[in-house]
Computed example of a mutant assay.
Amino acid sequence: MSQQASPRGTFLKIADVVRAQIQADDSMSELPAAADLMRAHGVSRGVALRVFAVLQKEGIAEPVPGGRWRVIRPGRGDDRRPLAERLTDVIADDGLEVGEAFQ
């Protein structure tokens, strides 16, 4: 009887690999795409999505529009609000009027 690797916990092992990559590369701002994880580790899309869910639960990553995932670096104070919301604040704070130059 041959032994096969159990798929249980595979997503946790891959999450460990991705977590180590994040810790090793301080400039890493995005997680690999699901397709990249699937290809690199020979897993299904469902497993790749579970990896992202683990990292999100740990506060290491968050989803961004377009199906990508962003790395969260605690203590950095990055403004992660949507661009439209940040621009609205700039316009209001600077008292800009319609047609006025934006610098």
Rank of each mutant, 00 (worst) to 15 (best):
A101D: 13
A48Y: 07
A33D: 14
G77W: 03
Q3C: 03
V71E: 12
Q56R: 09
D36Y: 04
K13S: 12
R81E: 12
S27I: 00
L12K: 11
D93I: 00
F102W: 14
A48T: 01
V71I: 14
R76C: 13
L31P: 04
A15V: 05
A33Q: 14
I60D: 02
D36F: 04
Q23F: 11
K57M: 00
G95N: 11
S2P: 15
V54Q: 09
Q3M: 13
R86A: 14
H41I: 04
A5K: 11
S6H: 06
P82Y: 04
F52I: 00
S27D: 06
A35S: 14
V43I: 11
I22M: 10
D79M: 02
D16E: 15
G95I: 11
P74G: 04
G46H: 02
D26Y: 00
E97K: 15
M38I: 01
A5F: 07
P65H: 10
S44L: 03
S29Y: 07
G67M: 04
A61M: 09
L83I: 15
D79C: 12
R86F: 12
S27R: 11
A84T: 09
D25R: 13
Q23E: 13
A101C: 10
A101L: 11
G46T: 09
V51R: 02
L31F: 00
P7A: 01
I60V: 15
G75L: 09
R45H: 12
A34P: 02
D36C: 06
S44Q: 11
V47S: 04
Q23D: 12
W69A: 01
H41N: 14
L37T: 05
V98W: 06
R8K: 12
E62F: 09
G59R: 01
I72T: 07
A5N: 07
A34D: 01
L55F: 07
V47H: 02
E100D: 13
F52R: 08
R19V: 03
A61I: 08
P82D: 10
D79W: 09
T88C: 11
A15D: 03
I91R: 03
L87Y: 08
D79Y: 10
P32W: 05
G9C: 05
R39K: 13
E30L: 15
V18A: 07
R70S: 11
R73V: 09
R80L: 14
G46S: 10
L87F: 09
R86T: 03
I14A: 07
R39I: 01
I22G: 05
G95L: 08
P7Q: 05
V47D: 02
M1R: 05
R70V: 09
V54D: 01
V17K: 09
I22C: 09
R39C: 09
E97V: 06
P63Y: 08
L37P: 02
V98D: 06
R45Y: 14
H41M: 04
R8E: 15
R50C: 06
L49Q: 14
D78Q: 13
G9H: 02
F11G: 04
